[in-house]
Design a binder for these strands. Structure first.
Lengths: 172, 172
DNA sequence: GCCGTTGATGACAGCGACTGACATCACTCA
DNA sequence: TGAGTGATGTCAGTCGCTGTCATCAACGGC
């Protein structure tokens, strides 16, 4: 991240990243499958935390409220990394290749959440739909949060869930 | 495509593709930004056709029915390329990097459709939502069509729109 | 305390995707 | 006819990424 900020993503070689970290280029590629992955490694942890929280939601929760709990459970993780997230997002926004990767990660999380809902007994069009809706809320909340000054992810996400409810309400 | 089928995507170098096409590797990269792009070039035309059809839909059409018309207008393009599409999808399904690109292309089309709806006077949460719903239908229809024997994209897509309506109906 | 195993790292060579720079050549239009 | 323009070829070079082998520390059984 420091190198990317100093001299840009494209201008930073993997060899430089490895050197700054005190190891070899070859070793870098044993830890990260890609140069891009160095910016998305955290996503795996995020997904794991969401899936875990989803499984821990009360069994009688509706699909969407279970998703709501899963997202709320990880919101706290973000607040302490607001500055880092801003810088990271700035880099991603400037590079289509990184946006592709981000989209793929989100899709993967959505699939994992849908699978988690199925494990709770939700059948399939609903499971996929609720998971996708949850990710839509997450994207919207993250975009707003990362641009905000304060950095209150929990509050922002609650607001986005309310917005979704209003949207659905208005559509009826 | 021939080369990819003969020897696989990874095993095919850009130099080979260029040679088969009767030009230089350098020239290849002047026509395609990427090696991957050679499989997604058609997407630009698809997007353009959809946007055009969307603009041509009757002014009083609802957002979703305008999207419906836009998708129906391009369905015919697919039928004559069913075999090609099957082979192409087989390659994409085996390579995550290509799936990333496919997702990005779909996202781009969704953005373009939302923009087209806004040009028709649809305001924003609805425009984005209708566009995303349309793409969801398209993905679902395309997946079913590409696996089918007959290759009737129009019929498949109509079926998927009906499925969406039933889903929404049942959700109320 | 010795040794075989295992896992992480370094060192090195190599391939292939992609780019910048310059030359060439056909085509167009004043 | 000649200047300008756009597409292509040529060449050299960078960098992402991989296979392979050697090294070395940590661990566990004997």
């Amino acid at each position: 991240m420091d190198l990317f900020i100093e001299q840009g993503y494209d201008q930073t070689t993997v060899a430089e990243i490895a050197e700054r970290a005190g190891l070899t280029e070859r070793t870098f590629f044993r830890h990260f499958s890609d140069k891009r992955e160095v910016l998305f490694q955290g996503g795996e942890l995020l997904q794991a935390a969401m899936v875990e929280a989803l499984a821990a939601a009360p069994p009688d929760a509706t699909p969407l409220s279970a998703i709501h709990e899963a997202l709320a459970a990880v919101a706290g993780i973000f607040d302490e990394r607001h500055d880092r997230a801003r810088l990271r997002q700035g880099i991603i926004d400037a590079h289509p290749e990184l946006q592709e990767r981000e989209g793929a990660k989100m899709a993967k999380i959505a699939t994992a959440l849908a699978e988690g809902l199925r494990a709770r007994g939700v059948t399939d069009p609903d499971a996929r739909l609720a998971a996708d809706a949850g990710i839509a809320v997450f994207r919207s909340a993250f975009a707003k949060w990362v641009r905000s000054e304060t950095g209150d992810m929990s509050g922002t996400m609650e607001g986005c869930f309310v917005a979704l409810e209003k949207l659905v309400e208005a559509g009826r």
